[in-house]
Amino acid sequence: MRLSYPANVKIVLVPCTGKVDVMHLLKAIQMGADGVYCVGCLEGACHYNQGNLRCRERVERVREILQEVGLEPDRVRMYNLSSGEAPTFVAYAREMTELIRRLGPNPLKNSQPAIRVEEAA
């Protein structure tokens, strides 16, 4: 089965969506990504029991943060499917792409953060 998904989607592999952190998602948006979505296993089917549920909570938190800072929460979403569902994967990729197109480009794209990490001496 050779299915194509939109080329604008860049995949970042993680061992489990439970590994995804608030900062990973936030940083992507902060640096100008138009949208980020997590694709995890079906709820109840996590090999590590709670990984995908934790991911969902983090996605929810990031959506709240986007709302607070003045961005559309829908730029960050969570999807679930089982590993054998390639057509569903493609459908989600298209759906997300469509959604982001409607929202338009991330306004943060045009500027860069100015954050310096002060290391403890």
């Binding site: 608030v22 900062m23 936030l26 940083k27 902060q30 943060i65 800072v69 306004p107 954050i115």
Partner: peptide
Amino acid sequence: AVLAAEIDMARRL
């Protein structure tokens, strides 16, 4: 890190 990112984004927006 989260708060700094939030402030940065909100102020740039």
